[in-house]
Design a binder for these strands. Structure first.
Length: 422
RNA sequence: GGAGAGGUGGCCGAGCGGUCGAAGGCACCCGCUUGCUAAGCGGUUUCUCGUCGAAAGAUGGGACGGGAGUUCGAAUCUCCCCCUCUCCGCCA
């Protein structure tokens, strides 16, 4: 949620942010609703103040053994009036609340303005796709040849855009998950969490998937749960409605979870292979920090994710997303992309976002600074990494001319062999 | 699924329908003190939303799991829901 004080005191900043994001939200309507809401609030409060005074008076008289019937009658009428006003006010609040949920975060000033990927800014890494000295097979071909993915049967048991890893493929996938978890827990100071992946509606509002991304998620029919689209949801909601101590911060969590996405509307794109699927594995990083340290921690998180790509020795680049490419709740987002020489494409394997206080306001996650009251924490998260595309990058980059796949050094202790095939 | 207990401030934990935003403790912060790996003494500190104010602050509303009700008035009474714990049953 955006800061309501900003809405009141400096709406032009929000208007500018909306423009940068190409949003067509009617801000004036929301401002108007907010004014109405406050006016109504004041009215109700004044009536209640009167009633409280009356009640006190009654109590006093009763203690003296009197029966102040006239006052009681007056108070009764007041109460009725209050009830009516309150009902109206509740409606006003509800409408305002619903509307304000749709306001996206204000982008950080360093974020380039633009509509699509072409406006993203290169930060570091490879400027050019590396060339292989032989014809690299795309992952769907090499994986079929080596019998480590079975997409036909995945489709038989679940449908299109599902992955079935098999044999050494399953082992490689498992190795990746373990490697990522070990890396972040032992080298980067994250605490491992293994959370539930069915999350209730409140959690999805908390992190900002709802209301906007409703149709991108799987919902349970009989219970108010969504299948988690990312571990960001459980990890960030762990401290929902809490006041943390300043000395606890930063809190760093890492979790492996499967992630579920309907990918509605993406049909026709990326049809082959496993770049875009309904269920995938991801190791996710989440941090809670103070506003002062927020961006330092954020840059560190980018490095933590980058370390994973580096350790696997994959060709990569880091892009700063433009306003049009960022998600709704994010103030700033970096993508780490690896190159897949078989597909001849750059693939996003990690997206690292800082939400500043946008999520913490929604989820009411605060911290106490000794002697200086409470404030909302900064939250941020990043993939560290998502496996399917990392898997692709490995089978395509580590492919040999004779059709094998070498195992990256750092994974050997998990896989137990040097290569897959022959 | 059945039976019972319970959900109160950052944490633990009291709380006859009005003087309870809530005893006490812990923690925290601020002083003082002390010759010892820290203790003692005193004091402060719930959160939230309005209004006025540049600010310090002043003033009012609200919050004791959530919602509805009874009442002039609810942490306290009634109903519904949610959650936690214990026991029984069932199941991986």
């Amino acid at each position: 949620m955006i800061d309501l004080k900003l809405l009141r005191d400096d709406p032009e900043r929000i208007r500018a942010a909306l423009k940068k994001r190409n949003s067509d939200i009617d801000l004036d309507r929301i401002i108007e609703m907010e004014k109405q809401r406050r006016a109504g609030m004041t009215e109700v409060q004044e009536l209640k103040s009167k009633r409280n005074a009356l009640s006190e008076e009654i109590a006093k008289l009763k203690r003296q053994g009197e029966e102040p019937e006239k006052l009681m009658e007056q108070a009764r009428l007041l109460s009725e009036q209050i009830k009516k006003k309150e009902e109206k006010q509740r409606e006003t609040e509800q409408n305002f609340g619903d509307a304000v949920q749709w306001l996206p975060n204000v982008p950080h000033e360093s974020v380039p303005v633009g509509a699509g990927p072409e406006a993203n800014r290169f930060i570091r890494g490879l400027t050019k796709a590396p060339e292989a000295d032989f014809e690299v097979l795309p992952h769907w071909d090499i994986c079929e040849a080596l019998d480590i993915l079975d997409l036909k049967r995945a489709s038989k048991i679940s449908g299109s855009r599902f992955i079935l890893y098999k044999g050494m493929g399953a082992l490689l996938e498992r190795a990746l998950i373990n490697f990522f978890l070990d890396l972040h827990t032992t080298k980067h100071g994250y605490t491992e969490i293994f959370p539930p992946v069915l999350n209730p509606t409140e959690c999805l509002y908390g992190t900002g998937q709802l209301p906007k991304l409703e149709s991108d998620m799987y919902r349970c029919r009989d219970d108010a749960f969504y299948l988690t689209p990312t571990a960001e949801v459980p990890l960030t909601n762990m401290h929902r409605e809490e006041i943390l101590l300043e000395k606890q911060l930063p809190v760093r969590y890492v979790a492996y979870t499967p992630c579920f996405r309907r990918e509605a509307g993406s049909y026709g794109k990326e049809v082959r292979g496993i770049t875009r699927v309904h269920q995938f594995n991801k190791v996710e990083l989440v941090k809670y920090a103070t506003p002062e340290n927020g961006y330092t921690e954020f840059e560190k998180m980018l490095k933590d994710a980058e370390a994973a790509v580096k350790a696997l020795r994959l060709p990569y680049r880091i892009m700063l997303l433009c306003t049009g490419d960022m998600t709704f709740a994010s103030a700033i987002t970096y993508d780490i992309e690896v190159y897949a020489p078989g597909m001849k494409e750059w693939l996003e394997v990690s997206s690292i976002s800082c939400y500043e206080q946008y999520q913490s306001r929604r989820a009411n996650i605060r911290y106490r600074r000794p002697g200086k009251g409470v404030d909302f924490v900064y939250t941020m998260n990043g993939s560290g990494l998502a496996t399917p595309r990392t898997f692709i990058a490995i089978v395509e980059n580590y492919q040999t001319e004779d059709g094998r796949i070498k195992i990256p050094d750092v994974l050997r202790q998990y896989v137990g062999v040097d290569s897959i095939g022959k």
